[in-house]
Design a binder for these strands. Structure first.
Lengths: 153, 153
DNA sequence: TAAAGTCGTCAACATGGTTGTCGAATTCCA
DNA sequence: TGGAATTCGACAACCATGTTGACGACTTTA
């Protein structure tokens, strides 16, 4: 059997990514978080449990502080994050996840475990481990969390 | 060694996709196509050698005909596509790739072969074939060509 | 031939990215 | 210690891309 054409490799990788993210959000919606968009999950992950300022968030996501601020606006509006004044530095405003935001992150982590377990059941643990190892080799393991802007430019 | 946490799997898949697409566009830029954005490559692929109407393009990309029309505007503006009246149906306008558009597609195909060959050199042909086969298993092989809108919603 | 459907476009809007600017607050250093 | 440099968050203007809704022009169909 001939090798697959080269252009299939990126499409397959994206299809895998997309399948996992779509499954995650379908299950999140079922568990009470129908408003979480993929972009929000990435942003909340970047905010983390200890909170972050808009500038820090921008650096972590690879976007400008202004763009990060807009994302925070959106998260605040949906009840997943809130802003609080920093008592030590009056310029800063600390963005923190609300209990609802933390809940969605915890559920996401659990769902990702389930989804990976599905892959293991389907492909076998060795193949999944090999797939992860190979991708780590080819990508250097540096995770960039910005997605939307990168594609459209 | 413990298994990787579940959330790494999608990040690794996306990192692999992104690495390939970034490498493609770096090389495309070197070969005289610095203006091609990832989204344009997908759109041109969807237009194909025989051309398409804006409505068809929208269906293939999974977006509205209006959004497809805007993408065509952009491709036209950059010299990668052109619109022509359909002699058989005065409502329709056929979008066709210009020679420059066709050139960028041909170069993309060649570059993807080179990139896959790099993966084979690094990982071995068996591992790359296994990776492709596993991803085909988990995704059903249905390629969706819309990317940008899906993520941000 | 009249009604229904399709095609492309325009308009209005949402989202999310960019750069530039700015006042306020903090840090640095001579 | 006090002025200069830096940093933070916000505002504005702009671009790119998506959405719906509407509409005129043109088929297709009943």
């Amino acid at each position: 059997m001939a090798d697959a054409p080269g252009f299939e490799l990126p499409l397959l990788l994206f299809a895998g990514f997309r399948t996992l993210i779509d499954d995650l959000h379908a299950e999140l919606a079922r568990q009470g978080h129908p408003d979480v968009r993929p972009a929000f999950g990435f942003a909340m992950q970047a905010i983390g449990g200890r909170g972050a300022t808009a500038s820090e968030l921008g650096k972590r996501l690879g976007v400008s502080k202004q763009a990060a601020g807009k994302t925070v606006d959106r998260l605040e509006q949906l009840g997943y994050a809130e802003r609080a004044d920093d008592p030590d530095d009056a310029r800063r405003k600390l963005v923190r996840l609300t209990p609802r935001g933390i809940d969605s992150l915890a559920r996401s982590a659990a769902i990702f475990e389930t989804l990976r377990a599905n892959w293991v059941k389907e492909l076998g643990a060795d193949r999944v481990r090999a797939l992860e190892a190979d991708l780590r080799t080819m990508t250097g393991g540096g995770f960039r969390l910005d997605v939307a802007g990168w594609f459209a430019g």
